[in-house]
Write a protein that binds this DNA or RNA. Structure first.
Length: 296
DNA sequence: CCGATTACCTGCACGC
DNA sequence: TGCGTGCAGGTAATCG
C-alpha cells in the first residue's frame, strides 16, 4: 500500500490513541511477518507508555518510555484499524466499532489512555511489513535508518540536493527517485506523478538533471518543487486508496482521484497543450506511467 | 563498488 | 464455473 503520504496518514490516525497512552497488552498472532519479530517482543512492549508517534520515510516510529522505539513498516499491504468501545469515542473522531478478528490480523495493541481505551490492530495479507524494537538513542544508526536518504518534505529537498545526490548516476531518473538511500519515502505512484508534473522522462539518466559542481539546475529545481507539492497534496488528501489503504478510522484516502499519470494508461495526457497519451512501460520490474510526448 | 533482477506473499481481475 | 496468468503502493538478497 503505502508510500510516505499513506504512512503519514496512518501516523496521524494513530497518534491520538497512542500518544501518552500505555500499552496494556500485545497479542502477537504469528512468529514473523517479513522478518521474525524481535526477541521478547510482547514483554518489551507491555506496560510501556508511548511518548511520541513519529515517522521516518515510510516507517512509523513509536517512541516508548522504556528507552526503546517500536519501528513498524507496512510493506505493500499493511494497514491499521482502531477499534473503540461504544460510547468511548474520542471527541471529533469516528472509528470502527469493536469487532471479531479478521483474516490476517497479526498484531493487536490494547491501549489505555487517560480518557479512552482502544484496540489497534495491524492487518497485512501479504506480510511484507515488519516490526522491530531499537534503542531510541541508536535510531539513526539502526539498520533500517543508517543508510537512509533525506525526507522529500520540507526544505531539505531542493534543486541543489537533487543535483548533488544524482550527480554521476547513470541509472534512469525514475530508479534514482525510488532509491531510498538518496531520497527516502517516495514510491511508484508519487515518482510517476512528480515526473509527469515536471515534464521529465523517467528514462533519462539521473545525472542529466545535475551539474558537476553540485549546483542546482532548472530541471532539478523543478523536480524538487513538484515532489514536495505532490507529497504535500497527497498527505492533505489522506493518501491514495487503490486496494488496501485506509485511514485508521476506515475512511478512504482520495488522492487517487487526482492522479495524472499513475494507473492512467491509454488516457489522454492532461498537460496543457499536450495531445499525448499516457503509456505504461516496465522499468526495473515495475510499471512506469508517463507521457512520452511532454516528458522529455 | 554498481545497477538490474529476483524473491518474498496473498488477493484480485482477466481471459479462456 | 474454474483455472492459469499477470499484476499490485514494499525492501532485501542475489546476480552479473
Amino acid at each position: 500500500m503505502p508510500e510516505l503520504p499513506e504512512v503519514e496518514t496512518v501516523r496521524r490516525g494513530l497518534a491520538p490513541v497512542m500518544e501518552d497512552a500505555v500499552i496494556e497488552a500485545v497479542t502477537q498472532n504469528r512468529p514473523d511477518l517479513r522478518f521474525p519479530f524481535p526477541d521478547k517482543f510482547v514483554e518489551r512492549l507491555k506496560g510501556a507508555r508511548v511518548k511520541h508517534m513519529g515517522r521516518r520515510a515510510k516507517y512509523l516510529v513509536v517512541e516508548l518510555d522504556t528507552g526503546e522505539a517500536l519501528i513498524m513498516h507496512l510493506g505493500m499491504s499493511g494497514s491499521f484499524r482502531i477499534e473503540l468501545e461504544e460510547g468511548n469515542e474520542l471527541p471529533g473522531t469516528y472509528h470502527h466499532p469493536r469487532s471479531e478478528a479478521k483474516a490476517h490480523d497479526h498484531v493487536v495493541f490494547a491501549m489505555k489512555g487517560k480518557t479512552a481505551e482502544a484496540r489497534i490492530i495491524y492487518n497485512d495479507p501479504r506480510r511484507f511489513g515488519f516490526m522491530d524494537l531499537v534503542a531510541t538513542s541508536e535510531l539513526s544508526l539502526c539498520r533500517h535508518f543508517e543508510k537512509m536518504g533525506i525526507e522529500p518534505t520540507g526544505n531539505e529537498l531542493n534543486g541543489e540536493t537533487i543535483s548533488r545526490l544524482f550527480a554521476g548516476k547513470s541509472t534512469p531518473l525514475k530508479a534514482a527517485l525510488l532509491d531510498q538511500r538518496l531520497i527516502a519515502g517516495l514510491g511508484n505512484i508519487y515518482v510517476c506523478e512528480a515526473l509527469w508534473r515536471s515534464g521529465l522522462s523517467p528514462k533519462r539518466k539521473a545525472s542529466t538533471i545535475t551539474r558537476k559542481s553540485g549546483k542546482a539546475t532548472e530541471r532539478s529545481e523543478l523536480l524538487a518543487l513538484h515532489i514536495r507539492d505532490v507529497i504535500a497534496e497527497a498527505i492533505e488528501a489522506g493518501g491514495s486508496s487503490l486496494r488496501d489503504h485506509r485511514q485508521t478510522n476506515g475512511d478512504l484516502g482520495y488522492f487517487q482521484h487526482r492522479f495524472s499519470a499513475y494507473d492512467r494508461e491509454g488516457e489522454a495526457c492532461s498537460k496543457v497543450e499536450c495531445d499525448g497519451v499516457i503509456e505504461r512501460m516496465v522499468q526495473s520490474g515495475r510499471s512506469t506511467f508517463y507521457c512520452a510526448k511532454c516528458q522529455r
